[in-house]
Each structure stands twice: as C-alpha cells, then as structure tokens.
Design a protein around this nucleic acid. Structure first.
Length: 200
DNA sequence: TGCAAACCATAAC
DNA sequence: GTTATGGTTTGCA
C-alpha cells in the first residue's frame, strides 16, 4: 500500500492506494494532518512508503481538485469499498449520486437506503473518500450544516462553491430507492441569516 | 428555542 | 452477546 500527497493551490490532497485501487482519499490545510488522517482511516501504524503517482492517482487528485473548486464530481474514479460494511457502501454510493448544486439530509439518505439517520451520520463521519464521495452534501433535516470531520467551515465553503441557482427540491432515483434532494441555496440562505448573528 | 427520548449501524469489550 | 457512540430526528413544553 502506498500513500500519495500533493499540494494544489495551497491545499493538501492525499490518496492511499494499493494495486491500482483507491482505498482512501482526504484533503486539508496541513500535509501531516492529511497523512495522519489517511493512516487512521485505514488503521495503519508505522511509516508509509510513497512513490510517483500513476495515472490512477493523478486522476483521483484531479477529481478532488475539481470538487474542491465546486466544479462537480467526475464519476470516473474507481473507489475500492470492498472492506467497508455493506450498509456503509450503500450509503456512500447513494450520497455519490447527489448532483452538484443539491444537498440531501441524513434522514433522507436513511430513507432511501433503508437505514436510520444516525447510522447515515456515522457513515459520513467515517467516509474514507472525502471529498470524492460528497458527504458535504448531506445536511440536517432542519437545513443546518450538520457536522463535518474536516471542520464546518470547510463544509460551508464547499457548498458555497456548488451553488447552481436551482430553486426547487426534487426526487432522484438511486439504486436502493428514491432520494429527496434540495437546492444548496436552501441551506446557504438559512445559514447566512445565522452567521449574521453568530459567526462561524 | 431547548431538551429528552427513540433510532440504527458499527466498533470495541 | 452486550454496550457505548455518534456529522440525527421528532415531538412536546
């Protein structure tokens, strides 16, 4: 298994891969934090070897860069979820289908996947593929931000860049059922009122 | 608003 | 098996 890190426009991106399969991805402002995060996600200890990124990693890096810039999710990155619990995989795949410009709620994802809201929150918290699996697009049912492992500020910034001007909620079909999504503007609108009172 | 109880998959014992 | 733990939700004062 190898770990790759790369600084793009001041942001550190990290990838852990093995035999041409992406096992985990993450990003952050500090190189060591990114490496540490990958190791914790994969339950690894000790030093990791790094090497020159192959086409696979380069593709993943550019995907993460695009997402961070709010340009949407390229779906050509193959992620290896084999080791994850079945339900977690289902949740991650479902969340991956939330389009740019829209968000869904923990409860909504739960309904679509036949689980519980808290369980979805758990899956998000442990999402090994941030931000490629867009867990930042999952918020609370009351249009609050919810949580984010990388910090709420980061989640907020990501969502701000994903504004597309949509005005209506809609349902989309996912493998396990129907998922209700609504414009990210709904969340941002409420949030800005809140921020006026109590800054993030 | 704020609080308490119900909820559900996981990980750790 | 059992228990503890969340990036939740909902209902009710």
């Amino acid at each position: 298994m190898e770990i790759y890190v790369k600084n793009i426009d001041g942001v550190w991106f990290g990838i852990a891969s093995e035999e041409h399969r992406v096992l985990a991805t993450t990003f952050g402002s500090d190189e060591n934090d990114v490496i540490q995060s990958l190791k914790e996600t994969l339950h690894l200890t000790g030093p990791m070897k790094t090497s020159v990124p192959s086409a696979l990693e380069e593709k993943a890096f550019s995907a993460m860069k695009r997402i961070r810039e709010g340009k949407g999710t390229p779906d050509n990155v193959s992620l290896c979820m084999d080791r994850l619990p079945t339900y977690t995989q289902c949740v991650l795949r479902t969340v991956s289908q939330i389009p740019v410009g829209y968000v869904s709620s923990y409860g909504g994802v739960a309904e679509a996947t036949g689980g519980g809201a808290r369980a979805v929150g758990n899956a998000m918290a442990k999402n090994p593929f941030a931000p490629i699996v867009p867990c930042h697009r999952v918020v609370t049912s009351s249009l609050g931000l919810g949580g984010y492992t990388g910090g709420l500020r980061v989640k907020y910034d990501l969502l701000k860049r994903e504004k597309r001007g949509y005005t209506e909620a809609k349902n989309i079909q996912v493998e396990s059922g129907t998922l209700k999504v609504f414009p990210v503007e709904f969340v941002l609108g409420k949030l800005e009122k809140l921020l006026a009172k109590r800054p993030l």
